[in-house]
Amino acid sequence: MKFREAALGARLASALTALAVASGLALAGMGSAVAAPAATDAAEPTITWSVTPADADGPDGRSWMELEGDPGEKIQEHLAVRNLGTTEVTFALNAADGYFTAKGRFNMLPHGTESVDAGTWVGVQENVTVAPGGMAVVPVDITIPENATPGDHAAGLAASIFSTGSEGGASLGVESRVGFRVLTRVTGEIAPSLAVVSSEAAYRSSWNPFEPGSTRIEYTLENTGNARLSVSGSTVAGGVRLPDASGEAAAPVELLPGDRRTFQLDVPGAWPVGLLRYPLTVEQSVILPNEASEPAAALQQNIEVWAIPWSQLVVLLAVLLIVGGLLWGRMRRKRQVEKLLEEAREEGRRSVVIS
């Protein structure tokens, strides 16, 4: 999968690079990836390549690196770069701190942004030249600092190429990179912890007063421990577990230590009957270095929201106005009839007296 960074001219290079990497660096779920064709001119040959974890002999089937070591320990690994194109290519190799984006995709810091954690632990040569259709296996050294804190630390490791061109008279630089995540657990006291730092709900009435509205629940989770977590949230409404009507749990999302993420749940079929209460349940499990997981106690919290039946009140007001209008009209006609009868009686009395 691709990692793309773009810079337009010298003044825009840093900003566009950061933007492109944030949107195009695809490390989540797949450790190896094939880059899209990279070329600045139709006449130039396209370049495609892949990068995977490896042993000294070549790719070893892993999607990414899951490591565990003591403070001060040095771990030796390898990566394999395959050149799937038709020309010899020199790839730049680099590592940087890793993180999960707001959409849950794994990413690594762009060039120009200094790493302060696991990205600085990864040692790899600056570049490697690979023949067309060939593969190069490159040693990788992960050195855990003596003062490294226990728990999980994330980095990304990538091979990239840089090409230049022009567009509209401006210089255009494009960096394309492919890589995988490097997750290292430092031994020591592992203390997983998850917190619901905020939660709220908003009720949305239906325009049709004879149909229920819906409730949107928004909550923010923070991994306050030192272990990587897999989390998923749900609520129960009308006996059905949401977010989906089938009752299946939401797709789990990974949170690195220190990560904070906001989630939303939409609850349909909510009638505006005053105070609504939704029991939010957040399932969590600790992800282990061997890619297994260990369940942890779920978090539970009640979320309340006032559901005012505005549509129904409008209908009720309209009905009251109609009924009131009918009653007022009836009373008015009754008074008119009584007035006519009284006038007729008075006329009759006057006729009797005159006779």
Rank of each mutant, 00 (worst) to 15 (best):
L27N: 08
L27E: 04
A28T: 13
A28P: 00
A28H: 12
G29H: 09
G29Y: 13
G29N: 07
G29D: 09
G29I: 07
M30H: 13
M30K: 13
M30I: 10
G31A: 04
G31L: 08
G31I: 06
S32A: 11
S32W: 12
A33H: 04
A33R: 12
A33G: 15
A33S: 08
V34W: 00
V34H: 01
A35E: 05
A35F: 01
A35H: 06
A36L: 11
A36Y: 08
A36K: 06
P37R: 13
P37Q: 12
A38K: 03
A39K: 14
A39V: 10
A39L: 11
T40E: 06
T40S: 12
T40Y: 09
T40Q: 10
D41H: 14
D41R: 14
A42D: 11
A42P: 13
A43Q: 10
A43D: 12
A43F: 05
E44S: 14
E44K: 08
E44P: 00
E44V: 12
P45Y: 00
T46H: 01
T46E: 13
T46C: 01
T46L: 03
I47T: 06
I47L: 08
I47A: 08
I47P: 04
T48N: 15
T48V: 15
T48L: 08
T48Q: 15
W49Q: 00
W49A: 04
W49C: 00
W49H: 07
S50R: 04
S50K: 05
S50A: 11
S50L: 01
V51L: 15
V51H: 11
V51S: 06
V51I: 13
V51C: 08
V51W: 10
T52W: 07
P53I: 03
A54Q: 05
D55L: 07
D55I: 01
D55H: 02
A56K: 03
A56D: 03
D57M: 07
D57K: 10
D57G: 11
G58I: 09
G58P: 09
G58K: 12
G58V: 08
G58Y: 09
P59I: 10
P59D: 11
P59K: 10
P59F: 10
P59Q: 13
D60I: 09
G61P: 15
G61D: 15
G61F: 15
G61R: 14
R62E: 02
R62V: 05
S63W: 09
S63Q: 14
S63E: 15
W64P: 00
W64G: 11
W64M: 07
W64E: 13
M65W: 14
M65R: 13
M65L: 14
M65V: 05
E66Y: 01
L67S: 12
L67K: 14
E68N: 07
E68P: 02
E68K: 13
E68D: 03
E68L: 03
E68M: 08
G69D: 02
G69L: 02
G69T: 02
D70P: 00
D70A: 15
D70L: 07
P71C: 08
P71L: 10
P71K: 11
G72H: 02
G72C: 04
G72N: 02
E73C: 02
E73H: 04
E73W: 01
E73L: 02
K74W: 04
K74D: 12
K74I: 06
K74T: 14
K74M: 11
K74F: 02
